[in-house]
Write a protein that binds this DNA or RNA. Sequence first.
DNA 1: TCCCGCAATAATAAGTCTGT
DNA 2: ACAGACTTATTATTGCGGGA
Length: 354
Amino acid sequence: MIIKIVRDRFWVKASNIERWAEILKLLPEKIPCSSKKDIARDYLGYKVDEKGRIVNADEVYGLFGIEKAKDSVTIVGCNFIRANEEGYELTESAIELVERYKQNDGWEKILAKQLLKYSIRVRSIAFALLNGGYLCFEKRYMENLANAYITLNDKEYYIFRDKPEDVNINTLMNDYSSKILGGFWRKELDIDDAEEIVFKGVNKEYPSLGSMSTYLKIPVLLFGYLGWIIENGDRRYVLDKHKIKNDADKEVYDSLVYQTDTEEIEVLKELIKEYSDIRGFFPIGIVGSMLKNRIDRESNATEEQWIDHYFITGINEGRFKIKDHEQGQPRHGRGLLGKKDYQLIKLEILEIRD
DNA sequence: TCCCGCAATAATAAGTCTGT
DNA sequence: ACAGACTTATTATTGCGGGA
């Protein structure tokens, strides 16, 4: 399946994150217009030049969703407004955004969540940063964007560059196209999970890259404003998994990562096998530390807090059972909840059933 | 140098005409 | 009625140039 995507267009002024909520607030839920142009002109007061083009209305176009032509599908925006039989209508999330904006009740999270669900380029960045990638800067955070890159699986993607011959955002989105398309669009377009996805431009082989830094920094700044971006090492940044899970919903988070739960358990089993003695006892401080590094590097919790939280939660949820425990040597590290007689643990891992 | 707005240009879709 | 050619309307993309 070939999906055409246009350049992502968000609110024009990067710091003006209220702009989309303000625009959507001006629109009725049902909009009896026959074109996007009419909405911008008749409801939002944009000027139209003598050739019939709307002046400076990029931010309006980014609100729409998909457009189907005879034999192609184009993603034109973040799906806040969709076409219906009579014209256009606000989507459920647009209505929620406006409602929350009026109440000033966490509307920024609704906005960010929508970008994570529907903007292919935003999903590409989030996907990379949630699956072991880092966003790296030469000097300071968000400076010199042309040389900033995401490193993922030993490949460097210069996501803000606009040269087609560079390894850029287009490379990233097509390297992981199936996961990046995500279940939300997949459901709306009725595309099978197994279908191969290729992203192309509307008029060209590859999606447009012009002014990519100008456009793409806007959602990155929004994520920063929400506290979703955390420094991890020298000038390297990742997304905070816990915040995204809480602020944008687990459903959205899950659409961006590979099946975490079973994968985590596999890592844990592997570590236990490596570090346990012949009886099956392993040092929880050491294994826990390795596990945190493997599956949750960017957590803000201290290592001790993380380990206690991870295992106690698992026990409470019935996924783990402590079969036996005993005191170890100082080299075995801290025991569970700081108890000396829980330095060495024998753990039963119960398979998760549906 | 980098960023950004603007406008020229390319591409596409929709509409109209014409000859069969 | 209906292909196919041609025209017009609209949108997408690029590239220029001013300003920090």
